[in-house]
């Protein structure tokens, strides 16, 4: 039995954690969720591609009120990974506008979400300043 499980299925754990996207083989549109078809071209064939681990923070917010169990404040944003946009938190940074800036370079990082009753660790991802 695995000791760890990714928070979402598009996070690949191991020595070199990375994200994968489902890329439409007809038009190249990329998605992170399970697909019925391509929203851009109606194609139904997808191939998994690796998303670059570094990117640019193209927008963010610092959230002060969140769902129960989510520590606040935290930084939520969108990272442009060489043309593929990824939704993520910015982690390992002071959550204030002095330390988080539009256009800053960030790279993928993982962290522990917690353990379940069987001792299996769920691992999440975020992006941290380079």
């Amino acid at each position: 039995m695995a000791d760890s499980i990714p928070l979402v299925d598009y996070l690949v754990l191991g020595d070199d954690p990375h994200l994968i996207a489902h890329e439409c083989t007809s038009c190249g549109a990329r998605y992170f969720d399970r697909r019925n078809a391509c929203a851009a071209c109606e194609g139904t064939n997808f191939t998994d591609v690796e998303v670059p681990r570094e990117g640019v923070l193209k927008t963010f917010t610092i959230v002060s009120f969140a769902a129960p169990g989510i520590p606040v404040p935290f930084v939520a944003g969108v990272v442009d990974c060489d043309g593929t946009s990824v939704r993520a938190n910015v982690i390992n940074v002071d959550p204030d506008p002095e330390h988080v800036r539009l256009g800053m370079k960030v790279k993928l990082a993982t962290y522990s979400v917690g353990e379940d009753a069987n001792g299996v660790e769920a691992v999440g991802f975020g992006f941290e300043p380079v």
Partner: peptide, 14 residues
């Protein structure tokens, strides 16, 4: 659709 093991709101953006 994301095969998530916990709520993603607050963990993967907001």
């Amino acid at each position: 659709r994301y095969g998530a093991v916990a709520p993603v709101d607050g963990r993967i953006g907001t």
